[in-house]
């Protein structure tokens, strides 16, 4: 299992794709970080007068984590299309399937590999957040809750992408459909006008479960939602690959 994730990660870093993704997302996030910083500086004077006003964590660190989530949404399809669809297209899957290793290990291995890449990206974002401590202090618990939310969010992205990747032979088709599905799950709650109202659509929304964690609220409901998504799509992918031998 770890063999597969290791290999997945190694091959990712052998290609320019991983480096370019890391570099460009870092560039974008750095720009966003500075924008948030500027905004904070502009407001700082007014806010110091108000008791209980939002601090650096709310105004710089947390928006940055939200931005990272959005950027990961854009990156995920590009990474997950490689995991199964591209291997299938290059006819590399028989190598894994005829090895003495079960399908679930292959799928979980690929999932861990993709997730590890995102963890690199998240760690780099956190370094940026931590640089705030040079001049100010952070609410560490809120950062922790936001980070956990981000990890769960990205894990859900990956697992959905891997499932769609297992459905198709053309990597681009896999990428486009993962992007469409992820984006749909991101915006699906726009249909419900009342933000406080709890509807099926808002329950389905990834964003709706991610936002509270960024605000520092750890609801078991949200964590459960992400875990359900991860397990459900892992199972679907395993079943899909298992069925491939039958038809």
């Amino acid at each position: 299992m770890l063999t597969i994730s290791q290999n997945e990660l190694q091959r990712l870093f052998l290609s320019p794709l991983a480096w370019i993704i890391l570099a460009l997302s870092q560039l974008l996030l750095a720009y966003l970080f500075l924008t948030h910083m500027d905004y904070f500086n502009a407001l700082q004077g007014k806010m110091s007068a108000i008791p209980g006003a939002p601090g650096v964590t709310e105004l710089i660190a947390m928006p940055l984590l939200s931005n990272t989530g959005m950027i990961c949404l854009l990156i995920t399809p590009l990474l997950t299309m490689r995991t199964i669809a591209e291997e299938r297209r290059n006819e590399n899957l028989p190598l894994l399937i005829s090895a003495p290793i079960s399908i679930y290990k292959i799928v979980i291995g690929k999932f861990i590999g993709t997730l590890s890449f995102f963890l690199c990206l998240i760690v780099m974002t956190l370094l940026m957040v931590m640089s705030i401590t040079l001049g100010s202090s952070l609410d560490w618990l809120q950062v922790l809750s936001g980070t956990l939310g981000l990890v769960l969010l990205v894990a859900s992205f990956s697992v959905i992408g891997i499932y769609l990747s297992s459905l198709f032979k053309q990597p681009t088709v896999a990428a486009i459909s993962s992007f469409a599905l992820l984006f749909l799950l991101w915006i699906i709650d726009w249909a419900s006008t009342n933000a406080a109202e709890f509807t099926l659509l808002s329950w389905l929304s990834l964003l709706r479960h991610f936002q509270p964690m960024v605000q520092g609220q750890m609801n078991s409901q949200d964590v459960a939602y992400f875990l359900i998504i991860i397990f459900a799509f892992l199972l679907l992918t395993i079943r899909r690959l298992d069925r491939e031998r039958l038809d």
């Binding site: 290999n7 090895a99 003495p100 290793i101």
Partner: peptide
Amino acid sequence: TPPLYKEQTVSEFLRFCAKLNN
């Protein structure tokens, strides 16, 4: 079609296959 990871070197690839085969 031989299943190969073209971005790896021969020994890297074979090391992966060795691990894969326990």
